[in-house]
Nucleic acid binder design. Structure first.
Lengths: 243, 243
DNA sequence: AGGTTAATTATGTATTTACATGGTTTAAGC
DNA sequence: GCTTAAACCATGTAAATACATAATTAACCT
């Protein structure tokens, strides 16, 4: 494990420090409650200023991964939220875990101009085409979800990739792009004509709509995913624990 | 509204600045998308350093109340009602944090026989009555959620409690029952006639449905909560990180 | 011995300073 | 008139510094 900071890297020092801390605190001794090295010392060891180090620690404190106590020290927060694991399974793995065989009803890849919200998330112009993937998936007899994915041009997708492979595996293998953080928004919607057609339901019927903002190792946006789930066939579960 | 910072106050300047900003951004012109004064200028106006001001702004950016854009400026994010930390904040606290005043449209407490699924979760008989609470809540002009809560008899509720207080606070203070773990299931539903009537929408319109299984300190079931959210007015957000 | 005080430790607060970087706007050049 | 470059603007990054404060520990005095 690399426990040093690269001052020549274009990645900001506080981001590097943050990532380093995320690794560091996985160490059993810290998980067990041992205090982290104090800020002044740690900053010296990493060859960054205390200000910069604090910036990194602040993030983890905000996420409630670390707890600071004045005059005492900083340690890993004992119990943190779960929910997690399920979100990092790919769709096929997720379905497999539920005992459902996945069927791909449609798979379509194209180059399109991003709409406003997509361009804004990716922080790119709406004038430049990006790769869009559309997918209708479900169980053997029931197409219950329609996915639309947009990928950041930084990744370098050509549109000719093998999208039948598990997506994140492919992105990691072929493009060294690793999904690291995902922010999701779940809401209920009326199916429009297009979605209703795909999911074989009435226009206006409820669908569970999931927006997914996926970020890579460097916290940079990499994928924008929209999922329309047929109402009766999908339940989103979250488990959270008081900290 | 006080738009100045008291340097003699024992309250840290960055906290004062944060509070001040929270007020400031409620101003319609900022809600409408006007850029905030730039950091250097605003810091000067408040007579604090830019670093301190940034500390305050950072918090709001973290909460996604503000958006910063390099070389451009800082503005209010078009905030939807979301449920990021909803998990462990009460509804009213969460809404307050979003600057929305909570209105209780209906509040009804009764003793009822539990149905099959409730009894099964609580591991009790369907022959014994338990406390049921129904609540229609929302913003000042929009009732957007209907809650139904069942409470485990172990807690010892009489039904005469002050349910206008934040729920979990009341349970903790009066009954030493602390919510510790929550398992949630989110799905989309068609509003039935009853729910549609409460939420003032058409029967058959989509609602976001959230089941919540709440456990106490000893991992024992304590509350079973059903929430029906008006589709357009609620987004459930989940943030997860690869581990 | 026990309680009070002081020293130590590590985080908390705050400022000043400097330069980098990504957008936007303006001006120059052809 | 269009493209390109320069200037400008506001946020982003980083460091050095200084002192305040809460928690712990050690020293002290009765």
């Amino acid at each position: 494990m690399k426990l040093a900071i690269d001052h020549k890297s274009p990645i900001p020092l506080h981001i590097q420090a943050e990532q380093l801390l995320r690794e560091l605190i996985k160490d059993p001794v810290y998980q067990a409650g041992k205090l982290l090295p104090n800020e002044v010392e740690l900053a010296k060891k990493l060859a960054i200023s205390r200000t910069t180090l604090r910036q990194a620690i602040n993030k983890l404190v905000y996420e409630e991964l670390l707890i600071r106590k004045k005059g005492f020290g900083t340690k890993v927060a004992n119990s943190r939220i779960s929910s997690k694991s399920m979100n990092w399974l790919s769709f096929s793995q997720e379905m497999k875990a539920r005992g459902i065989t996945v069927k791909n009803y449609e798979l379509h890849v194209s180059w399109v101009f991003p709409d406003e919200s997509t361009a804004s998330f990716f922080d790119i112009s709406t004038e430049k085409k990006i790769v869009k993937m559309e997918r209708l998936r479900g169980s053997s007899d029931n197409p219950f979800v329609y996915f639309i994915s947009y990928f950041h041009p930084r990744i370098g997708l050509t549109g000719e990739e093998d999208f039948k492979r598990p997506l994140y595996e492919m992105l990691e293998d072929e493009y060294s792009t690793i999904a690291n953080l995902s922010k999701e928004e779940i809401s209920a919607l009326e199916a429009n004509k297009f979605i209703a057609g795909k999911l074989e339901i009435e226009t206006g019927s409820p669908v569970l709509f999931r927006k997914r903002f996926v970020y890579d190792q460097g916290e940079r946006p990499m994928e924008y995913n929209l999922g329309y789930y047929k109402a009766e066939s999908f339940v989103y579960t979250v488990e959270s624990r008081r900290t």
